[in-house]
Each structure stands twice: as structure tokens, then as C-alpha cells.
């Protein structure tokens, strides 16, 4: 039931001389929503980016420690980096649709991994657009450019694009911060459904959002994990002073 999907062990991240993540230890449960919480600049986004090794893109980044996914260390394994990344769908702060039409945005991940049969692609695209509740809104204009969609629709499209390559994990970096309340709610509800099948890690600084959707919370401050635990315990009975201070800023 409570098996660990991602195991972070002694994880350190440096950008040049800056020490961004300090000795992170955490176990992220499978098929649950884990929220990484903390003030801006605490390293929560960096932690998320470590998990699919987007930190590789940063030329001065140095990552050490272990990130075990289902027991395999993705930092030292010989596995192709593209396969590692494919296991994880990424949802960014703002939607960044690829410069192509709606259909191709979803089909992109499938195409580049060699799935080119039209019928198959069409079937998959429809499936994932339905999964994110976008199908009815776009089915008549699949060949319109993706940027013509509203920003909330774009974010759902990006989610569908990430899901289309059949990942096991969804990484989301403040996925609702650019959205209006309705679109945010749509995304949140979608996450609640998706956790049946996916392990979801969400970065946010919105306490109420964390409280609404999280099963498990990791609270970070200044590059360190201060406290982590199941959501109820975290909010109702925080153990660390820092956590208490942080939660005091909460209004509801």
C-alpha cells in the first residue's frame, strides 16, 4: 500500500558555488500526491528538477547523492536519459505548448519515440485529451495552433502531452500559479483523479492548495528538508519550530 516510488538519499545540489540542496533525505510514496512546500527560493523547484535530471541542462550544476526510482539510481545508472525522463511527465509553472498544432502537441512524445501510425496516434491523442477533459473543447480544431487555446486549456494540453508518453510519475511545478481559479480547480481535481494511477509530486507555495490535495508533505527551507510527513500530521501537529512559524502565516 505505502510503497516508496522515489527515494532521495543524501542528495546535494550545487550551482557553481551556491549550495542549493543540502543533504535531502526523503521517500515519496507511490500513487499519492506529495506536495513540496516552502517559501520561494527554498530549493523546492530545484528538487523537482533533479528528479528528471533537468539539472543536467545547467552547465554549472553539480548533483550528488542518490535518486532511486523503484530502486534504480537514476543518477548513476547507465539507462538512457531520455528513458528516465519519459517515466516522468513534467508540468511547468506556465503552460509552454510546443510550436505546433493541438494534435501534434500530444502526439509529439509518441512520434519522437517512434510511434508513427496515424490510427494509433489518433486514438492515443483522443484518449489523453479526454483524460484531461479537453477533448470536447478542442475536438473540432485539433489542427489549430496550440497557442490559440486559453491558458487554462494550454495547461491541460501540457498535462495531456506529458501523460501521452505513459509516465509513472507526474512532476508539477506550481502548475496552477498562472491560472484563473476555475482552471486551477480543474487541474487540482484532475490530480486527485490521476493519483489512482500515477505518483504525483507537486511544488507549491500555496498552503491551502497543499492542504486540499496533498497526501504527504515535504516542507523545505533554505535548501533543507525541515519536516515531512502525512498531510494531517503536518498541518495539525507540526514538530519543528520552523514549520510552525511557516504555518502561522496561514489564513482560512
Amino acid at each position: 500500500m505505502n510503497s516508496t516510488k522515489i527515494h532521495l538519499s543524501k542528495l546535494d545540489l550545487h550551482y557553481g558555488k551556491q549550495h542549493i540542496l543540502k543533504n535531502i533525505e526523503s521517500e515519496i510514496p507511490e500513487k499519492k500526491i506529495t506536495v513540496i512546500l516552502g517559501p520561494s527560493g527554498c530549493g523546492k523547484t530545484s528538487l523537482l528538477r533533479c528528479m528528471n535530471r533537468l539539472t543536467d541542462l545547467h552547465p554549472d550544476a553539480h548533483l550528488s547523492g542518490k535518486i532511486l526510482i523503484d530502486g534504480t539510481d537514476i543518477l548513476s545508472s547507465n539507462e538512457d536519459i531520455t528513458n528516465i525522463r519519459k517515466m516522468m511527465g513534467l508540468l511547468a509553472q506556465r503552460p509552454y505548448p510546443l510550436p505546433m498544432n493541438i494534435f501534434n502537441n500530444v502526439a509529439y512524445g509518441l512520434r519522437i519515440s517512434g510511434r508513427k501510425k496515424k490510427k494509433y496516434l489518433h486514438h492515443r491523442v483522443e484518449h489523453y485529451l479526454k483524460l484531461v477533459n479537453l477533448w470536447d473543447e478542442v475536438k473540432d480544431r485539433l489542427h489549430d495552433p496550440a497557442v490559440a487555446l486559453s491558458i487554462g486549456q494550454q495547461q491541460r494540453l501540457c498535462l495531456a502531452r506529458g501523460l501521452a508518453v505513459d509516465p509513472q510519475i507526474i512532476l508539477a511545478d506550481e502548475p496552477t500559479s498562472a491560472l484563473d481559479p476555475q482552471s486551477s480547480q480543474a487541474i487540482e481535481e484532475k490530480f486527485m483523479e490521476l493519483k489512482e494511477a500515477y505518483t504525483i509530486v507537486i511544488v507549491t507555495h500555496i498552503l491551502r492548495q497543499a492542504k486540499r490535495i496533498a497526501d504527504y508533505v515535504i516542507f523545505m527551507y533554505m535548501g533543507e528538508v525541515i519536516e515531512q510527513g502525512p498531510v494531517n500530521e503536518f498541518f495539525e501537529n507540526p514538530k519543528q519550530e520552523k514549520t510552525k512559524e511557516y504555518l502561522k502565516g496561514m489564513f482560512y
Binding site: N52, R94, Y96, L98, P99, G109, I112, S113
Partner: peptide, 22 residues
């Protein structure tokens, strides 16, 4: 934007595919 590159990479594209298609 870097995010576009990241979006492409995170669905499993290689660097070159990202350059070519995105």
C-alpha cells in the same frame, strides 16, 4: 524559453530532436 526545451526533453526527446522539432 528554456521551458520549451525542458518540455520537449521531459517527454523523452533527445537534444537533437528538440532542436529539430521544437
Amino acid at each position: 524559453p528554456d521551458e520549451l526545451t525542458e518540455a520537449s526533453l521531459s517527454v523523452g526527446a533527445t537534444r537533437w530532436q528538440t532542436v529539430k522539432f521544437v
